[in-house]
Design a protein around this nucleic acid. Structure first.
Length: 574
RNA sequence: CGGAGUAUAGCGCAGUCUGGUAGCGCACCUGUUUUGGGUACAGGUGGUCGGGGGUUCGAAUCCCUCUACUCCGACCA
C-alpha cells in the first residue's frame, strides 16, 4: 500500500471529548471516527488492525476444535421471554418491532439463539461435546458509552458456546478455552493475566476473566508475583490475619469529637492511625426480621460489596442504609456509629476482629470511644471476609504478598451449567435413550475492545506502538525527497516491490510531505519497522532502520539489508 | 437514571455578561519557499452561530422550548 492510496486521516489535535489515551490516539491516527454516542466508523487503518485481531482469534478458535457459525444481530424477543432474560436485560437491550408489529431486539449476546439452534440440531449425545463460535456485532444500549471503542454501544465480540453431557466434559472444554485464550493474547503480544472472577448471578463452577494490564483499566486485579495467582479484587479473599489479638492495654474512654465524622477527620483529631479506627456501615438485611445489619471494618480497609452480599444476613444487591434510616434506628448520624451497644446484628471483618485498643463511634453524635476491646467491652461478633484486599496483603495462595494492578477486561470464560438449556429445554438423548439437559459453557472476547486495550498498553508521547501481530502494516518506507531525487524514488520503489513480493505488509509513504510530517505520521500510527531511504544513505551504501519501540535508528549496509529485515520481522512476530 | 456542563467553519476555540459588519489557530486549496522531526510567507475556499418559537428597528448574544453530545455518579459481559 502507498500512502497516496490510503485514507491517512491523521490529525494533530485531539478531540476534546476523548479522555482515555486509546480513544485519543485512535482518532488522531485516523483509525475511527465517531458517528453518534457509542457508535464509530472504522476507517481503513483501524479496520486493518481489527481484522488482525479477528484473524488471530479465528485461527486459534479453529485450532481448538470450535466451529464457526454466524447468528443474526436481530433476534425475536420471544426467545428472550422464553429464557426469562427479557426482564433481566432491561433497557440495555434495544427493542423494536418490524412492519408486522412483531417484537425484535438487537442482540446484546447470543446465548438464547445458540441454545435454540442446538436444541433443534443436536439430538444425540454422540454429537457432544461441541463448541460453536462466531465473530459478530453486538449491541448494548449502554447507559453511558465512554472511552471510545472500549465501552461503545455497538461492538464486535467473539462469542463461543460449548455443550456437554456432563460437568466433567464442560470442565475439559473450559480448560481448552483457557489455554486457547492464553495463546490468543500471547500471540497478540499483550501483557495479560487470566484472573479468577466472580460468577455473578448465574453461579456455576468457574469463571476467569482475561485482563490486559494497563493503568487506565477499570478493574482492579490482585496478583501474587510468586505463584501466578490472580483474581479480580471483587473475588480475592482477604485471608484471616495470622496474628492473634493483643491483650487490652487501655481503658475504655468516651471522648468528645465534635464534628469529626470521616476516618480521616477522626484520625487527625485523635492522632490515631487509620488501622486503629473501626468504621461501622449499615446495610439492608436479607431477613425482614433483621432489616438492618452493621458491618465493621478497619478504617484503612474498604468494603467489598460483592463479598458482603454473599453473606446470608445481607440483602443482595448490597444496599447502604440512608441517613434518615440510620438516625431513626440508632439516633446518630453515619459518622458516629460504633459496634458497642449496637442493637442490631453485627458482622465484623476478620481484620477488624483482631484489633485491640481501637477507636469507634459512640452511637452519639460528637462522641467516639477510645481504648475499646472486643470481649472486654463488647462481645466479639461473627466474622466474615468483608473487605477488599489491598497491596501487601498475604495472598490466598500462601506464597507471598498481593500486588494490585489495573486491568482491562478483554475476555471472559464461564461455566454456565444448565441455566439456558433448562429454560429453553435443550436436551439430547443419552446412552439410555432418555432426554438429558445439556451442560453449557460460554467464552467471550471483546474484539473491538482488544484494539483499544492494546493501545492503552502500548503507546508513547508520539503515538501508538503496535505489537507486530496487530500492526496495520509491518513496515513503512519513508523516502527523503523522493519527488526530487530519482535515485531515492527508484531505491524506495525497488525495496517496496521486493517486500511486497515477500508478502510483507509494507506502507510506502510516497506523499510529497516534509520528512517531519512523514516521521510524525508513521510514529503516530505505530508501524513497528521503519526504513528511511535517502540520498545520504545511498551515497554511503546504507539503509536506515528503526524499530518503533527502540529509541535509536541503525544504519545497515545495503547488501545485508533484506536479510537483516527478515530477521527483525521474524523476531517481531515471535 | 440522578447531578453538572457544552453546542459558533472539518478539528480546537474566542465572541454571549453589556444586542449593532461572524473571528482566531490547525486542516484544506493556489503560488513561492523549505527539505532528516508537524517549515515560512502571501492569497484563497469553507458558517442556517444545534433545531423551533418569542422579545426587539435589529439576536450567535436576551427569554421559552426541543434535541444532541460530554463529564461526574449509579450501573455493567
Amino acid at each position: 500500500m502507498k500512502t497516496s492510496n490510503l485514507l491517512l486521516a491523521t490529525t494533530r489535535e485531539t478531540p476534546s471529548d476523548a479522555v482515555v489515551i486509546s480513544h485519543q490516539l485512535m482518532i488522531r491516527a485516523g483509525m475511527i471516527r465517531p458517528l453518534a454516542g457509542g457508535l464509530y466508523n472504522w476507517l481503513p487503518l483501524g479496520l486493518r488492525v481489527l481484522r488482525k485481531v479477528e484473524a488471530i482469534v479465528r485461527q486459534e478458535m479453529n485450532r481448538s476444535g470450535a466451529q464457526e457459525v454466524l447468528m443474526p444481530l436481530v433476534q425475536p424477543l420471544e426467545l428472550w421471554q422464553e429464557s426469562g432474560r427479557d426482564q433481566d436485560m432491561g433497557q440495555e437491550m434495544l427493542r423494536f418491532t418490524d412492519r408486522h408489529d412483531r417484537p425484535f431486539v438487537l442482540g446484546p449476546t447470543h446465548e438464547e439463539i445458540i441454545t435454540d439452534l442446538v436444541r433443534r440440531e443436536i439430538r444425540s449425545y454422540k454429537q457432544l461435546p461441541i463448541n460453536f463460535y462466531q465473530i459478530q456485532t453486538k449491541f448494548r444500549d449502554e447507559r453511558r458509552p465512554r472511552f471510545g471503542v472500549m465501552r461503545s454501544r455497538e461492538f464486535i465480540m467473539k462469542d463461543a458456546y460449548s455443550f456437554h453431557l456432563s460437568r466433567e466434559s464442560l470442565q475439559e472444554t473450559y480448560e481448552v478455552m483457557h489455554q486457547t485464550y492464553s495463546q490468543i493474547f500471547n500471540r497478540m503480544g499483550l501483557n495479560f493475566r487470566a484472573v479468577q472472577a466472580d460468577t455473578g448471578a448465574i453461579g456455576g463452577d468457574g469463571s476467569h476473566e482475561f485482563h490486559v494490564l494497563a493503568d487506565s483499566g477499570e478493574d482492579d486485579i490482585a496478583i501474587c508475583q510468586n505463584s501466578g495467582y490472580a483474581a479480580n479484587v471483587e473475588l480475592a479473599e482477604a485471608i484471616a490475619p495470622s496474628q492473634s489479638r493483643s491483650a487490652p492495654g487501655q481503658n475504655l474512654e468516651k471522648i468528645a469529637t465534635p464534628k469529626q465524622h470521616t476516618i480521616e477527620e477522626v484520625s487527625a483529631f485523635l492522632q490515631q492511625p487509620y488501622q486503629k479506627i473501626l468504621k461501622t456501615l449499615l446495610v439492608k438485611g436479607a431477613d425482614p426480621a433483621q432489616p438492618i445489619i452493621a458491618l465493621v471494618l478497619r478504617g484503612d480497609h474498604e468494603l467489598n460489596e460483592i463479598k458482603a452480599e454473599k453473606h446470608p444476613l445481607i440483602a443482595a444487591p448490597l444496599t447502604l442504609v440512608n441517613e434518615n434510616e440510620i438516625f431513626a434506628a440508632i439516633g446518630c448520624n453515619a459518622g458516629s456509629i460504633g459496634p458497642v451497644g449496637l442493637p442490631i446484628p453485627i458482622i465484623c471483618d476478620r481484620a477488624a476482629a483482631v484489633c485491640a485498643d481501637f477507636v469507634c463511634g459512640a452511637n452519639q453524635d460528637g462522641f467516639h470511644l477510645q481504648g475499646v476491646n472486643w470481649e472486654r467491652d463488647l462481645p466479639l461478633p461473627s466474622t466474615f471476609d468483608l473487605r477488599k484486599v489491598v497491596a501487601g496483603d498475604p495472598s490466598p495462595c500462601g506464597q507471598g504478598p498481593l500486588s494490585i494492578f489495573k486491568g482491562i477486561e478483554v475476555g471472559h470464560i464461564f461455566q454456565l451449567g444448565n441455566k439456558y438449556s433448562t429454560a429453553l429445554n435443550a436436551t439430547v438423548q443419552n446412552e439410555n435413550s432418555r432426554a438429558q439437559v445439556l451442560e453449557m459453557g460460554c467464552y467471550g472476547i471483546g474484539v473491538t475492545r482488544v484494539v483499544a486495550a492494546a493501545i492503552e498498553q502500548n503507546h508513547d508521547e508520539r503515538g501508538i506502538i503496535w505489537p507486530d501481530a496487530l500492526a496495520p502494516f509491518q513496515v513503512c518506507i519513508v523516502p527523503m525527497q523522493m519527488h526530487k531525487s530519482p535515485r531515492v524514488a527508484e531505491a524506495a520503489q525497488t525495496l517496496y516491490q521486493a517486500l511486497l513480493a515477500q508478502g510483507v505488509e509494507v506502507l510506502l509513504d510516497d506523499r510529497s510531505e516534509r520528512p517531519g510530517v512523514m516521521f510524525s505520521d508513521m510514529d503516530l500510527i505505530g508501524i513497528p519497522h521503519r526504513i528511511v531511504i535517502s540520498e545520504r544513505g545511498l551515497d554511503n551504501g546504507l539503509v536506515e532502520y528503526k524499530y518503533r519501540r527502540e529509541p535509536q535508528a541503525e544504519e545497515i549496509p545495503h547488501a545485508d539489508f533484506m536479510a537483516f529485515l527478515t530477521q527483525r520481522l521474524s523476531e517481531g512476530a515471535r
